[in-house]
């Protein structure tokens, strides 16, 4: 399967590259855009980015392994990020994550991101999402949910199943 970046995305990234006096600076923005489009950052995406920015692939790959938001394998269509850190933990985010996992047949004690076999959901514990006043919070794809109750969690799952 050949790796093709659609031309509109490529020109968007070319424009972003002009924001920086040094092309390498655009690396993170490239990886975000490619992950958004392809669902994850593949080896091809790393090499393509390196070529576009005049870098060695290792210069890009070391970013993928350093920054927690980048993924090297496809994720579920609904990505549930439950905040693990203190203020959310105090409001029950541990139980919340267990609920998501048990309802989806995932290991409620595993810490790393887990994806359901049907590819519909990925559940992950993440560090502070900077909304501690409305704990517990859950980031579902790009939408932040506040004061998430068990009922809210079930609603998130319902919506994800229908997606």
């Amino acid at each position: 399967m050949s790796f093709t970046v659609p031309s509109h995305l490529e020109s968007e990234l070319d424009e972003i590259t002009t924001h920086y006096p040094v092309k390498r600076s655009a690396s993170l923005m490239f990886l975000h855009a490619l992950q958004e489009h392809f669902g994850y950052v593949s080896k091809d995406a790393v090499e393509w980015t390196a070529r576009k920015l005049g870098l060695q692939p290792i210069n890009v790959y070391e970013l993928v392994t350093f920054y927690p938001m980048f993924r090297q394998e496809p994720l579920g269509k609904t990505h549930v990020k439950v905040c693990r850190t203190l203020s959310c933990a105090l409001q029950g985010s541990g139980e919340l994550r267990e609920r998501f996992c048990s309802k989806l047949g995932l290991d409620p004690h595993a810490h790393a991101p887990q994806t359901t076999p049907d590819g519909k959901f990925t559940v992950e514990f993440v560090e502070c999402l900077a909304s501690c006043g409305t704990a517990p919070v859950v980031l579902v794809n790009e939408e932040l949910h506040h004061k998430v109750s068990s009922a809210d969690a079930d609603a998130i799952l319902q919506k994800g199943k229908a997606a």
Binding site: S25, L28, L63, Y67
Partner: peptide, 29 residues
């Protein structure tokens, strides 16, 4: 003057100003 938005990618250490600068240069923070 031009101002651009640059997105981090989930690393707390980018809040440290020199780590942030490295990250903005396209490197590990």
């Amino acid at each position: 003057l031009e101002i651009h938005v640059h997105r981090g990618a989930g690393a707390y250490i980018c809040g440290e100003e020199t780590g942030l600068i490295e990250s903005l240069e396209g490197k590990r923070a």
